[in-house]
Design a binder for these strands. Structure first.
Lengths: 208, 208
DNA sequence: ACCTGAACACCGTTCAAGT
DNA sequence: ACCTGAACACCGTTCAAGT
């Protein structure tokens, strides 16, 4: 009872344990978290700004898991595509966290710095200024939409027996087994967006 | 006190009022809902299967707001693109509902019937069976990712003053004013996916 | 069948009291 | 500064009691 000689808790341990709970149960509560940390619920509040603050810690963690090195690659489309893959991979490591973060995308210094670099890459490549934000938003939507898909149980794509949907059932059966449906959809979407961007550049921008 | 001669509540009024609350506040609680319905909290439970059941009612409502007529159009790409727009428009009418539904996509009879028809359309157009589910998933990801974007406050895309991101700031300033950034990103993404699908068909499928 | 009032377990959060 | 124990408001849900 009273302050221990060495602190029992710190933000890192809180974040790591919350992440464990989300990975296991898809969500967390502060009492649950405290129990796992071997501490009283109220103690947690001395280190973070409420439950919201813990979710923010998890958001930052995901942001830190993104590998920004691909942005150094050239030409622009190789850099962009590789970065988007690393962005999505960070979510894929903790799919059940995605719905908790989905309301508001990551807007920490790391992501903003990455976006600054992406804008520069697109700008230098010759994209017209008015479309750059459109492209960036479309790419982010792709990553978030695909990340949500990772969180959805595969059962979501099963046709209930009482529903008569023979061709949908056949299409489901025709999927390459084992290969992740979600991964393939992301690959397809990313390839399509990249082609769209290259087309756009050759039509409206370029060195001419 | 006791049962009234005519029922005060029904599922439709519950759903409509819950939708009002979500539109206004971005969420709802059962006591809030009961208060607005002029009824005791416990009364609500006689008509729906808990709070989860109410969310399901809202999910169904969104599904019913989708216009399936575009699926009758020809050729296949016109039908598909028009349907995806109507799908997304249903979410756009209640953007703040999206995060509540995001965890699990709509899987009611209407959507399954629509997907059955889309699969048929793609199949008849000549798409190879193994890629049809990939295409369908990519399209759904686009709609859900863009719908989440609708729910995000526009402030999300502001650069905090302490962050040095001049080119991102410039790109934000170069956006066509008034025109929805979210809408344009959806348009771009949809156009890119449609082009990707047409390319895929001409390479792997077709009447040859 | 449908509404009420009371109850229960649980959650997020605060705060005075201790070291 | 950091942990505890107790407290508070609120939420989702249940249930016996009434008509």
């Amino acid at each position: 009872v009273g302050r221990p000689r060495k602190a029992l808790l710190d933000r890192d341990r809180i974040a790591a344990t919350a992440m464990e709970l989300v990975d296991e149960y898809g969500d967390f509560t502060v009492p649950e978290l405290a129990r796992r940390l071997g501490v009283q619920t109220a103690s947690v509040y001395h280190h973070v700004d409420g439950r919201t603050g813990i979710v923010e810690l998890l958001r930052v963690r995901i942001g830190e898991a993104i590998d920004y090195a691909p942005l150094e690659l050239r030409p622009w489309d190789v850099a962009l595509e590789a970065f988007m893959r690393s962005y999505r991979a960070a979510f894929a490591a903790h799919p059940r966290l995605v719905p908790l973060l989905a309301t508001t995308p990551i807007r920490d210094a790391g992501i903003l710095a990455a976006y600054e670099r992406i804008v520069a890459v697109l700008d230098d490549a010759g994209f017209p200024a008015p479309v750059i934000m459109t492209a960036l938003t479309a790419l982010e939507n792709l990553v978030l939409g695909s990340a949500l898909d990772l969180a959805a149980p595969e059962v979501m794509w099963e046709v209930p027996p009482e529903v008569d949907a023979p061709r949908l059932t056949a299409a489901l059966a025709a999927q390459p087994p084992g290969t992740g449906r979600a991964d393939q959809a992301f690959d397809f979407g990313l390839a399509a967006l990249m082609t769209g961007l290259r087309d756009l550049l050759s039509r409206t921008g370029g060195s001419g």
